[in-house]
Design a protein around this nucleic acid. Structure first.
Lengths: 157, 157
DNA sequence: AATTTTATGGAGTTAAAACTCTTTTTTTCT
DNA sequence: AGAAAAAAAGAGTTTTAACTCCATAAAATT
């Protein structure tokens, strides 16, 4: 339930989810060299094309993707898929606040990165949050892509 | 870094954080019976008063707070602080999506609450997320309030 | 060289979260 | 009963994330 309307609170922004899914799509469908265009990716993944374009731009600027203009152009991974983690992508698109900021917005936690238990909850929650961060850092695109049996899993929402 | 502007991505909405901090304020400053008004809470915690009013309304409707109108009215906890968990508050204000939705928005996970490893990342991340949920469920307002030495910790953002 | 195809860049629009303002209702105090 | 104090309710506005549109730039094909 939400106070003022419809809410769907996510840890990760839609923008970032789209980015992750597009990169996975490339990892699954390209053999490293082959370029894939925004049109094809956005149609297959059912994502808004022009918006995805912006996201890809950002990922290209941040050396996650290579982009080539013109006919037969498109995007390919700029590194081995085993060298790209979900954390890398989240950090570029959403930043890493989600892994570090104080969960209830207490000032003292923000100025106290050692978690020397000034906010009682931070003392209890920071281990879980470190695990969360670790999970994102250890999950590579390469390994993720290997685990995908059917691309249909990634169609639509 | 964020693509289009300034982003500060939080697991928990500001609305919810304000609610948690206001409840903590009441738990620390009231002995169970004493009512405290929005004006005092919002001034001391540096929160937008009318907005906090809405949040308190919602929490009152959901039996977390008692509210009394008129002179010497205000809000008090509707239950023992040990019976109120952070999870309760998050669920009321933000919903529990943040603990359950698929982190990268893959359809198959949403329709598959058993996590029978169709999405490779869900298989790896759901344990951390269960821990996160547990952490929120086990953290009561009562215990939290006991751990607060100085209210100054909770002033401002 | 001209055309086509694809990404890039910039300036918009839309929808939802965050926040404000004003009026009404309830309670208490005189 | 009347006035004052507080929350409730409703209708706004502002800000930000999400998304679109159009013109430009670069590369390949003819």
């Amino acid at each position: 339930m939400y106070i003022f309307g419809v809410l769907n609170r996510n840890m990760i922004s839609n923008t970032c989810k789209y980015g992750i899914r597009a990169i996975l799509y490339i990892a699954v469908n390209s053999d490293g060299e082959k370029k894939i265009g925004i049109k094809k990716i956005s149609e297959d993944l059912n994502l808004p094309g022009p918006f995805l374009g912006k996201i890809m731009q950002t990922l290209a600027k941040n050396k996650i993707l290579n982009s080539v203009k013109g006919p037969h152009g498109g995007f390919s991974l700029a590194k081995a898929p085993e060298k790209i983690s979900l954390y890398d992508i989240v950090k570029i698109i959403d930043g890493d606040d989600v892994f570090h900021e104080c969960l209830i917005g207490v000032k003292i936690c923000e100025s106290n990165p050692e978690y020397t238990d000034l906010c009682p909850f931070m003392g209890k929650s920071h281990k879980v949050r470190e695990m969360l961060e670790k999970t994102f850092k250890e999950q590579t695109i390469g390994e993720f892509a290997k685990g995908i049996n059917s691309l249909d899993e990634f169609l639509q929402i």
